[in-house]
Each structure stands twice: as structure tokens, then as C-alpha cells.
Amino acid sequence: MTAADVVAELDDLAVHFPTRAGVVRAVDGVTLAVRRGETLGLVGESGSGKSTAGLALLRLVDPTSGRVRVAGADVTRWSRRRLRGMRRHVAMVFQDPQASLDPRRTVGDSIAEPLTVHRLAASAAARRARVAELLDLVGLRAETADRHPHELSGGQRQRVGVARALAGEPDLIVLDEPIASLDLSVQAQIMNLLRHLQRDLGLTYLFIAHDLAAVEHMSDRIAVMYLGRIVETGPPERIYRQPAHPYTAALLSAVPVADPRVERERRRIVLTGDIPSPVDPPGGCRFRTRCPRARDECARTDPALAEVGPDHRAACLFPLDGEPDRDGGPAREDVPAA
């Protein structure tokens, strides 16, 4: 893997927000590289910092420390003005397509905005033609350009969001829970659309999701976040079959299994309590307060990401090494079954 293959990366990035309650450590030392042509699934509960990490890749939030590199350039300290040129290279699809489209502008206006801003169309006619082409790419008719967002269904709106993201031919598209606010029946359609577009156009995705099920069939690599840190990263076949971090195992056991017999029999790891406050994360391992396997050492040592298999790393002092056991999660005696 050479540097040229990395389209965007975060290097030991921290994003802290000062609030009245104290400093929120939304992202606290995340290193992440997205490679050309892949889908990197970034998974975590709400409050894990996954969305903030995604926004940091577009420099939509200001890093507290660490580096952000896009297309080989260190953009960490770039001014707002200078960043505008960079923004063509990284596009974003937002969770709520209704909120992310200006209600007063037509679909065509919204899709054409990157073309206008970056002067990618020679004329108004060329812009219209490109908008029609983009609409076709996402499976919408050219006439949709004259509609307003409120005249479209949720799925159609998200297609518009995708078309807008494609307009500048970006190197990377950050998908921030792109299907989470859609009806179940529409979710599959949008997933298929994203998959086909990636295959046909050679796109690179950072796919942010709050559960592992959403990214399973899509990702080439998975990174799991917890309280502002990446706790495990690896290829999906390792993450799903042999998770090394107890948190990943817990997330996996929350994914329902379609077979009712298996579903009844399998053991589920139920995490107790809420995710701790990112204002005051626990010392040592951040997961220890909810970890069924926590020991005294976990309070003393903050584990770094360490190799547990090929291209597979986990930040745990006592990583799981159980048999592949997708249905029940790693079966261990010290994991309480619900």
C-alpha cells in the first residue's frame, strides 16, 4: 500500500469542543486512511465521534491537534478560502436528505451548485446537460431538476443528495449514515445505487454507520469507533467472524439473525449503561466501564491499536481470540449471556 493509494487520511486527529460542561473530546486520537477505490466502513454508537471524524476529513470542523491530508496535501491549517478548492475532491452525503437540500431551490439548482462553484460547466446549457446526466446516474428523470425537495419522496431526495455529491467528480465521498433516516424498503434501493455507482465510476467511500449490519455487504475494511477512538479495524471477514475487541463483539451480537432458531439460541452480549460522557472519558481503556471482560489492568493502561491478524488491529489488552462464532458472538465464560 503506497501513499499514492491514500485519497484522504486523518493522522492522530483530535477534535475537542469547548462546552459549558467541559471540553468534549469528540475525536481523540484517530488515525484513518481511506484508500482509492475502497469502501471504508466507520461504525460506532452515537457519541462515538464517527460523524465528527467524517466532518474532519472535509475540514468542516477544526482539528484540535493531528493532521488531515487530502489528495496528498496537508490541509490541517488551510484557510476557509483555500479549502474551497479542496472541497471538490471530497464530497459528502448527509443523513437527512430533506434537511440537506435547500427547500427554496430546485433539485437542479442543488445538483448544479458544485458545477457553478468550481466552474465545471462552460455554459448554462452544459450545466443543464450535466445535471440531466447526473440525475440519470442516480435513477431519476431529467424533469426532476425543476422540482423542489418537498415534492420528492425520501428516497428520491437522497438520490438527489448522491447526485450532488457526484457532480464534482470527487476522489472521496463521505457517506454520513446515508440510509439511516430512510424507510426500510428504500434503504436497500439506496444501498444498491451506491454499490452500482461505485462499481461503474470507481468511487471511494467512507461509509459512516451506527451498526455493523449496515456496512457489512458494502465495506472493504471496517473501523469501529468508541468514545472518540478507533478500537478495532480490519477486513470485514475478520471483523464479522473473529472480532478481537469486546466492543465489536457486543455490536455484532446486537445484529439480529434472520434464522429464528439461531436467534433464540444465540447468546447476546448486552452492554450495560450508556456510553460514558466524552467530556470525562474513563482513564485507562475507555471501554472498561462497560466491558464484560474488564480487569484491574484495564484501568491503568490505555491500550493502543495492535496487530491481531492480517490487516487486523485492535486496541485491547485482552483481545478475544475465540472460534469464529458469528451467530452467538464469541462464546466465553466471562461474557454474561442475556
Binding site: M86, A91, F94, S100, D102, P103, E113, V117
Partner: peptide, 23 residues
Amino acid sequence: VFVRAAVSIGASDLRIMRRHVLP
């Protein structure tokens, strides 16, 4: 979110104020 979307596209502040905020 649509203002953040406009920023993410690379729209200038002036453009965002005129085209997205004012209307």
C-alpha cells in the same frame, strides 16, 4: 444541514448568504 452542505461543496460565504440564507 443545507448550509453545511453548501460549505462542503465549496461555496463562498457570500454565495451562501445570498443564495441559501437570505431566501
